[in-house]
Design a protein around this nucleic acid. Structure first.
Lengths: 341, 341
DNA sequence: TCAAAATACGGAAACGTTTGCGAAATTATT
DNA sequence: AATAATTTCGCAAACGTTTCCGTATTTTGA
């Protein structure tokens, strides 16, 4: 299926043994420069392509990294993968990409499939349904290189890359308060997620610092169905206890909020000020009114994940991935949706 | 690196030969039901995971499909991959995903890397820079299963999945004309792309049918730099020959147009009506004013690509992928951006 | 000049699977 | 009851690499 020419054929053409040819191509010190030249030339001429599976079988490594994430249609995850690909590609690594679609059963299946060594490492962000992390713990306990980003598992002792969720949320909420908000809603995907916990904590602390207390009915947990989310948010926005500010912990819920607002006569920012974690800055500026965002360092997160993994995988006797939380700060960009009028 | 237990170990535990165990696990008719039960049970118990590389090496297939596309941060490509994954995952196939970032040199590198058989097939959409398709032609000539979607290579005799680019563009342009537009701009990524050729043809024919002729200065070829695109569009929109309608052949240029319009005093749809190929319908409804779209059957395109490939790869003596163009129609959704006032 | 060391290469095993072939044990056929 | 057919399994080769050894040749050292 490849070009058909393998080491043996190449060796035969050169009247050398396969072992010599292999060593020549791998630039072994045991081979003279003269034969190296000849081998490389002939390999080029015959378009020799080493069989990756034979190599993987022999070396017990696949030169492949798996990325497991909740969804593909999200500028956040797309950019993170771009970052990962940027550095892995430079090192000749390939990327297997899986979407769990926020479904923990699919996540388990994928993880179990990856236990057979098809990939040398996994970089992942858990689904919003994931509360039992035994499948991930087992993977890690077997010594499989595993790192998390964004939606992490705090209890699994490995390296995790996040943004400063707590601080950004604190600052973002503080910003809303400074703009005059007193009743601030909080939108989240699932209470299980590390990011909602941290972001919620930042939100709560900012409220407390300002002497405000959260209103239970304004804390909305959303699901995967966009239409249902829009309706739930609309109901909350038009309830008796309607908020004057809103903090969305993820991008898609900010979009859902704009949809919900369109179904009411609420005016942003006059009646409602909005801030959200949001990575698609081009869209943020296009919304009406433009959205004040907390922008994560998406591409960089991907790059850092990949850099660490590459180091771990390429250096011969590398220690395990340390149990650490690496935080790369987000940036708040104030736009029209929170400008007091 | 896997669980450590291989066929030999499993066989030893069962006091059977590796060949028998292999056959039992593969449900061979040569093995009695009794031993099959025992083997399966023990495999489960010892958590046996077959080594994918040994299998790939032996069977000369990887159970992996590669997807090569121009960019990841596009709802169109994201949805197509979701569609592909949906069917490939059901058949136990894995997905290697590559982004060329609209760079033909990267595209060539990726294609050459994939020639070694790491993937059983490639489904791809070419970069906007791709005019020389020799790297793809060579791949196909070697018998490598290759199919295209959206941005196809007409000259490579394989199966291609597209939407009805010509008809949709004709209808979309006709719609603009019916709404009173007389000077309609056309935005494209690159004149080399199959989709711009077809969509441009539909646009031109619709103009001709209405007795209109295209204005050269309103045909804007854009590049990869978003800011430059916005400025080029803004310049065009504010030129002496300013248009009253605009047809964007891809999603990102519609967004760029909205950005450009924000920098002027142009009102949509009063001064300028806009229609665009666009697959992120949630965003389309959120733009101000909401955008009239030609929505491609993204998920279905992905599904169809994958279904065909799976059939080709799993049936034993399957013929080559036929040289055919399969078109799945788009749907025009009229929103505020083209409503005559 | 002769042993020792360095250089350059080949043979063969190993990675873990699948499968062709052969053979033993069981069952069916006459 | 003897043979044929069937069932059930094991041996060994093969997939294409890499690498541990061994060895022949050349170079170095005294």
């Amino acid at each position: 299926m490849s070009s058909g020419v393998n080491l043996k054929a190449l060796a035969a053409e050169l009247k050398l043994s396969p072992s010599t040819v292999s060593r020549a191509l791998n630039d072994s010190y045991e081979i003279s420069e003269a034969t190296k030249k000849k081998v490389v030339f002939m390999a080029e001429k015959m378009n020799y392509q080493p069989n990756p599976f034979a190599r993987s079988l022999r070396e017990n490594k696949s030169k492949t990294i798996a990325v497991v994430m909740p969804e593909r249609m999200s500028s956040f995850f797309a950019k993170v993968i771009d970052g990962i690909e940027e550095v892995t590609q430079q090192h000749g690594y390939h990327l297997l990409v899986y979407s769990t679609h926020e479904d923990v059963e699919r996540e388990k299946k994928i993880i179990n499939l990856l236990m057979n060594g098809r990939a040398d490492a996994i970089v992942m962000s858990v689904s919003s349904q994931t509360s039992d992390v035994s499948h991930l713990a087992r993977l890690h306990e077997r010594g499989f290189p595993l790192i998390f980003f964004d939606r992490i598992c705090p209890d699994i002792p490995t390296t995790k890359f996040i943004t400063n969720d707590y601080e950004s949320s604190y600052e973002g909420t503080k910003h809303l308060i400074q703009q005059g908000c007193r009743k601030i809603a909080f939108l989240m995907l699932s209470k299980e997620l590390s990011i909602t916990k941290e972001r919620y904590r930042g939100y709560l602390d900012a409220l407390k610092t300002a002497g405000l207390s959260p209103t239970p009915s304004l804390q909305v947990t959303c699901a995967h169905d966009e239409e249902k989310n829009i309706e739930a948010i609309r109901a909350m926005l038009t309830s008796a206890d309607r908020p004057d500010g809103l903090f969305s912990s993820v991008e898609k819920l900010a979009l859902a909020t704009y949809h919900a607002v369109k179904r009411t006569d609420i005016k942003i920012p006059q009646d409602l000020k909005i801030i959200s974690f949001f990575s698609n800055i081009s869209i943020a500026g296009l919304l009406t009114p433009s959205l004040t965002t907390i922008t994560q360092p998406t591409f960089q997160i991907g790059e850092e994940c990949a850099k660490l993994l590459i180091k771990k995988l390429t250096k011969p006797r590398q220690p395990d991935l340390p149990n650490q939380l690496i935080s790369i700060p987000s940036k708040i960009t104030i736009r029209s949706s929170t400008i007091a009028v």
